[in-house]
Design a protein around this nucleic acid. Structure first.
Length: 571
RNA sequence: CGGCGUGUAGCGCAGCCUGGUAGCGCACUUGCUUCGGGAGCAAGGGGUCGGAGGUUCGAAUCCUCUCACGCCGACCA
């Protein structure tokens, strides 16, 4: 491709709405253009990148035995009503009516449709196992779209669905997808990690997420450097402290905390470690107040709370509800001396093992110190793991200590079991003629998100640094004086023709622009290999090669440059 | 949805407080010069100042309403 025949639209300054480096760079490089909130056009340059990601995803899915199909983006409401998710999915689903007032949605995912296909097409165990996939535009009406294509409302997703005769078969399908996903992200040149995940709204048993590691990632990941344990923080178990609760050694006493409404402030005032304080979080579930106690430096894990008995649809208590029960404003709440018949007291495992701790006194401007279980208040009604793990916690596999890093979720694989096949009567006949529900799995990859995540992981002050696998063009030829020097033009054209003949995605910058702006553009859009052709080096029969990755420059004989480039591209 | 904040040329912004002929940089067009790191000079084109209503002789500027977008909190590939 020649730049004069292509469409480059680079910007020196990024539009102000962009926050993350990847978002700014994608706009500056002209990969995408915003149409509305969470809606982006993939411009010609960006589409080339997206297509390269898609191609790798397709190759590996095909290799893993999955079959591509394409389902409608618009789906009738009936299927969703049948699975019960029409109401459950909520406002995140874009709903619409046709001219006959029939309900439809723009598909946020395709479990219902694929299950409908399977139940009508698959009758016998002899047809199984099967894995169908598609690369499709999805729409989720995100509460807050942001970060460009990383959290867009309309986005490109690869979703696959496996159908097996039994749980062992499903586990094998799942394992194949795990392998395929690892291969895909490796081929894309990404640093990634597979972690244990919560299965969330989609449901099911086992599930793992694939994360591109990046400091700006929205998810916190817990991993153990000395074992293979890795989990999303929301799914990582916090073990109970190994040491038993120490005996009480302090007397119960009130302390003045005139303005200290947080554990941090109280700890600072009393000059004690934050780990000696306990905070109280008031929740409501089943019309009853639920009091959760957490150590001062820990944070509530809402996923874990939601899984406790009777807490499935919990919410945070309102300030009125808090005042009604405690007769005290938030900031000074404590578990000592409250009417335990009207509430349930849930203690985090860590708190249950504490002694001589500090909590609110249930009266404004006071906290209580030297609090001890059993002596000053009855034991908790429930001791459970309700906190997020923190760096330094023991690894749940008992093989070391956890560290925390951040990641961008680009893939998620689930073992669904029979959740959807039972809801939608997706059955087959086994060898004994028995009707059985199919065992399903589903596997998603955020194709458009990958582009953003990859840039978030690979950029410098000059712009994007695409891996060879994702770059819109593999090689950029920058002639200095293409319009002025016959020799330069002839050499550049010859190199261009030769690379094209070799099947290389090559971009020849034949604009009548100054070299500085051509260099800057090629660097901004992230072309991994650049060849500069100029009179100076041509006089010695050489051209200049620059690697975008490290900026290393070398003079290469004209006769050798094609072979050198082919060698680098093959790496 | 709640809490802020911003809407002025394609992009980045000033002007608004204190009403009086709409500006700057980049980008774009033309010409001359320049040509290995986002060139210089000169001349140009482009804006219903988000929208509606109001106050006023006069509104980008003041008031009311509205829409859009962005940031901070709960969802997810």
């Amino acid at each position: 491709m020649r730049t004069s025949q292509f469409f480059l639209s680079t910007l020196k300054e990024a539009p102000s709405e962009a926050e993350l480096p990847s978002h700014k760079l994608m706009l500056r490089a002209g990969l995408i253009k915003k149409l509305g909130s969470g809606l982006y056009t993939w411009m010609p340059l960006g589409l080339r990148v997206l297509r390269k990601v898609e191609a790798i995803v397709r190759e590996e899915m095909d290799k893993a035995g999955a079959l591509e199909l394409l389902m409608p983006a618009i789906q009738p409401a009936e299927l969703w009503q049948e699975s019960g998710r029409w109401a459950v999915f909520g406002p995140q689903m874009l709903k619409m009516k046709d001219r006959h007032e029939r309900d439809f949605c723009f598909g946020p995912t395709h479990e219902e449709v694929i299950t409908d296909i399977a139940r009508s097409e698959i009758k016998s165990y002899k047809q199984l196992p099967l894995n169908f996939y598609q690369v499709q535009t999805k729409f989720r009406d995100e509460i807050r779209p942001r970060f460009g294509v990383m959290r867009a409302r309309e986005f490109m997703m690869k979703d696959a669905y496996s159908f097996d005769v039994d749980a062992a078969g499903m586990a094998e399908s799942y394992r194949k997808m795990h392998v395929a996903y690892s291969t895909i992200f490796t081929r894309l040149g990404l640093q990634f990690r597979a972690v244990k995940a919560d299965s969330g709204a989609i449901g099911g048993d086992a599930s793992q997420e694939f994360h591109v590691l990046a400091d700006s990632g929205e998810d916190a990941l817990a991993y153990c450097p000395t074992s293979d344990f890795a989990a999303n923080v929301e799914a990582a178990e916090a073990l109970a402290p190994a040491a038993p609760r120490a005996a009480a050694s302090e007397a119960l006493r009130d302390v003045d905390t005139p303005k200290q409404t947080t554990c941090e402030a109280v700890a600072a005032l009393l000059d004690i470690p934050l780990q000696r304080t306990v905070k109280l979080i008031a929740l409501v579930a089943g019309e009853q107040l639920q009091i959760v106690l957490l150590r001062g430096d820990h944070s509530l894990n809402e996923v874990k709370v939601g899984k406790l008995p009777g807490m499935a649809d919990f919410r945070f208590a309102s300030e009125e509800e808090i005042r009604a029960f405690f007769n005290c404003p938030p900031g000074f709440l404590g578990p000592v001396g409250i009417d335990r018949s009207r509430v349930r007291l849930i203690a985090d495992r860590t708190v249950a093992a504490m002694s001589d701790f500090v909590v609110g006194a249930n009266k404004p401007k006071f906290h209580t110190a030297g609090v001890n279980w059993g002596r000053d208040l009855p034991e908790a009604d429930l001791v459970a793991d309700v906190r997020n793990v923190v760096a330094g916690d023991a690894s749940p596999d008992g093989k070391g200590v956890l560290e925390i890093c951040r990641g961008i979720e680009v893939g998620h694989i689930f073992q669904l079991g029979t959740k959807y096949s039972q809801a939608l009567s997706c059955n087959y006949l086994d060898a004994e003629g028995q009707l059985k529900p199919m065992e399903m799995g589903c596997y998603g990859i955020g194709v458009s998100r990958i582009v953003g995540a990859a840039i978030e992981q690979n950029f410098d002050e000059k712009g994007i640094k695409f891996s060879a696998a994702m770059a819109p063009f593999s090689v950029a030829i920058v002639p200095v004086g293409y319009q002025r020097s016959e020799a330069v033009k002839a050499a550049a054209d010859a190199l261009y023709a030769e690379l094209k003949a070799q099947g290389v995605d090559v971009l020849l910058d034949d604009r009548d622009a100054r070299p500085g702006s051509m260099f800057a553009d090629m660097e901004l859009i992230g072309i991994p290999h650049r060849v500069t052709v100029g009179d100076k080096s041509l006089a010695e029969g050489k051209v200049e090669y620059v690697a975008r990755q490290d900026g290393n420059t070398e003079l290469v004989a004209q006769a050798d440059i094609v072979a050198r480039l082919l060698g680098k591209l093959a790496q």
